Amino acid sequence: MTGDLDRKIAVWTPDLSGVNGQNMVTRRVVKNQKEFLGTIYEYPGNTLSSIPRTLWLAARLALSVVRGQHSKVYLVCSRSSIGFLRDTLPLFTSRLGARVIVHVHGSDFPHLFERRVIGRLARWLYASCEVIVPSHHLLELLAPSDFRQLLVCENFAELRDFDYSRSKRRAGNDSIVVLWNSNIMASKGIVELVQGIKLLRCEGVAIKLILLGKAIGDAEKSTATMQAYLHELRQTVWIDVKGSVPPEDVSLLVSESDVIALPSTYSSECQPLAVIQGMLGGCALLVSDTPAMRSTVGNYPAVFVERNSGSIAHALRQIVQSRSGPAECEAASHARERFSPDRFDSCIRRTLTAGE
């Protein structure tokens, strides 16, 4: 290829050392599209001491565009007001003639344009950018005419060393295993899930819970509060708190679980990896009734709940009374195609090289 692709694509992203879904996706883009990429500008975390370095990196990126070293920018955007200000200079390169491809990773992205002061600037900057969203539900909240281009590229997932031939059908006297495979946050519904399982156990149902992830604060409860709550859960005999585990261990835990639960109302929840992995593994799904979750689940059999213990307990009763069958197996096979890493790579590659 010649032309603009001879000038590599600059990448603007948060520090990639953190363990989260956004970084997992970005690391794959950096690794598998490296033939097209130039300098990776990783800015540090959200601290006052990090501001000078972040500004310096943003200036260097903009200067590289002005000098012709980069003709494109792949930008992993922030959705907060402060984060948007951090992205402003890299976004502005679209007004200098660069092709800026923005990858969105949260359902709260549309809220950025609704803010009184920053929203106007955001609309002006994003109007000359191409925007990738991971979920079709966001298309209903965004106007394609507000961007140079708006397209969907769904996320990917895989279960390493997973035996897909293994049946998920349970014997009638087996305990039901519920897996929580996300960070321990109040807005994700962990408290209500535990209460819902307690209700079933009081009815004599053999059911246990495995918890993955670490305690993180949000708008509802602080990190310290969630850490204390997690400490309490460690004392409960039917709850196995494992914390953060490597990917190969997640595959094994999914294979040993009956239900993947995520009754989340977290505002940024978009296309959670935990739910996708549950679909790949043919597990029963218990998820919140939100546009993001419905878009992620698609045609996969799932039970949608409100974020309260009664709704969750009712859903679990339905799951306990059911047995996995051909419908789940067929849906799991479709999910493995839909969320294939190769499909994701192809989608990103087509976007990065479009017009060349």
Rank of each mutant, 00 (worst) to 15 (best):
M1N: 11
M1C: 12
R7I: 08
K8G: 13
K8V: 05
V11I: 07
V11L: 03
V11E: 04
G18D: 08
N23V: 12
N23A: 11
V25R: 03
V30I: 05
K31E: 15
N32E: 15
N32M: 15
E35F: 08
E35M: 10
T39D: 06
Y41C: 07
Y43T: 01
Y43A: 07
P44W: 03
P44A: 06
N46A: 10
T47H: 02
S49G: 08
P52Y: 05
L57N: 05
L63D: 06
V65I: 11
V65N: 01
H70N: 11
K72A: 12
L75K: 00
R79K: 10
S80A: 14
S81N: 15
S81R: 14
I82V: 15
F84S: 00
R86V: 02
L89Q: 11
F92S: 07
G97A: 02
V100W: 00
V104G: 11
F109H: 08
L112V: 04
R115H: 07
I118P: 10
G119C: 13
L121I: 07
A122G: 06
Y126N: 08
S128K: 13
C129T: 12
E130K: 09
L139Q: 04
S145P: 01
R148N: 03
R148H: 02
L151C: 15
L159N: 00
F162I: 07
F162N: 06
R166V: 09
S167L: 13
R170T: 13
N173C: 05
N173T: 13
N173D: 13
D174Y: 00
S175R: 10
W180S: 08
S182C: 09
A186F: 12
A186H: 12
G189M: 13
G189N: 12
Q195A: 11
I197R: 11
L199M: 03
L199I: 01
L212A: 14
K214D: 14
E220R: 04
V237D: 15
V237G: 12
W238S: 13
I239L: 08
I239D: 09
V241K: 08
V241T: 08
P247A: 08
L253G: 03
S257Q: 00
L262V: 12
Y266L: 13
S267T: 07
C270P: 01
V275Q: 07
I276G: 03
G281K: 00
A284L: 14
L285K: 02
V287I: 05
V287L: 10
S288K: 10
S288L: 09
S288F: 07
P291I: 10
A292H: 02
M293K: 02
M293T: 05
T296W: 05
G298T: 02
A302R: 09
V303M: 01
R307S: 09
S309E: 13
S311P: 00
A313F: 15
H314W: 01
L316G: 06
Q321W: 00
S324W: 10
G325C: 07
G325M: 07
E328W: 06
E328G: 04
H334Q: 12
H334M: 09
D342L: 15
T351D: 02
L352W: 10
G355A: 12
G355Q: 11
